[in-house]
């Protein structure tokens, strides 16, 4: 049984047919990447999984359970973390409050504290900024906070929407190292990127999405060698 399965998923924004039958699978423990040009439907795919875009046709199952029509807060409480496009940290809350809200479903305060310490191990910078308003962080720190916040619920599956967007290469490097570590410790990752080279270097398998349809899928290293992919996304 696959971990996450999308079968023929269709999403519309008004009259715009944004996803035209997306099918993909993610196995437990994998890193899978979804690459494609701007406007291809990557964000919409992740939003469909978390019930933030309405699925008009098709089916999404997570660990064998149909989650297509569950509300967002129930989907994520099954163990799915989502680092949204543009980070979407709560800028008016402090760093600490952002992390705490990431663990909203956890009632045990000491457990929240322990997870916070774990997040600091990956992102020591956040500890230094703990009582600062999140809106005052740099772009890289905000991305770390967005990832740290998602980790506070200890998700089994983490969805990441362009975590490298707008960040300096060194910071991107840092973040990808942490994603690798996370995966080694057991978290399954579905990574959306325009930064195709980096994403395919990290992932085991990849999907290429174009105009709301899956164009091709293969092992990541095969896609890295593919001439069409090279021409379109690795130029």
């Amino acid at each position: 049984m696959s971990f996450l399965v999308l079968e023929d998923v269709h999403v519309y924004y008004g009259g715009v047919h944004a996803l035209k039958g997306i099918s993909l699978t993610v196995e437990e423990g994998e890193i899978v990447t979804l690459i494609g040009a701007n406007g291809a439907g990557k964000t919409t795919t992740l939003r469909a999984i978390c019930a933030q875009a309405r699925v008009r046709q098709g089916r999404i199952t997570y660990r064998g359970r149909d989650i297509t029509h569950l509300p967002t807060h129930e989907v994520v409480s099954l163990g799915i973390g989502h680092v949204p496009e543009g980070r979407r940290i709560f800028s008016r809350l402090t760093v600490k409050e952002n992390l705490e809200i990431g663990a909203f479903s956890v009632r045990d305060r000491s457990l929240v504290k322990r997870r916070q310490e774990q997040v600091f191990e990956s992102f020591p910078r956040l500890k230094e900024r703990l009582h600062q308003k999140a809106g005052t962080l740099s772009g890289g720190e905000q991305q770390m906070l967005a990832i740290g916040r998602a980790l506070m619920s200890e998700p089994a599956l983490l969805l990441l929407d362009e975590p490298s967007m707008g960040l300096a290469p060194v910071v991107v490097e840092q973040i990808f190292d942490i994603l690798k570590e996370l995966n080694e410790r057991g978290t399954t990752l579905l990574l959306v990127e325009q930064n195709a080279f980096q994403a395919l270097s990290l992932a085991r398998r990849g999907y290429v999405i174009q105009n709301g349809e899956i164009l091709m899928t293969d092992h990541a290293h095969t896609l890295l060698e593919n001439e069409d992919v090279k021409a379109a996304y690795l130029a």
Binding site: C50, Q52, H73, V76, P84, F90, R92, I101, G102
Partner: peptide, 21 residues
């Protein structure tokens, strides 16, 4: 209370934090 402030700022993202908006 923190959830309230989070929802006030960004409902979609608050829902991603498993908050029932």
């Amino acid at each position: 209370g923190t959830a309230m402030r989070a929802v006030a700022q960004d409902k979609d993202t608050a829902a991603l934090m498993s908050i029932n908006v």
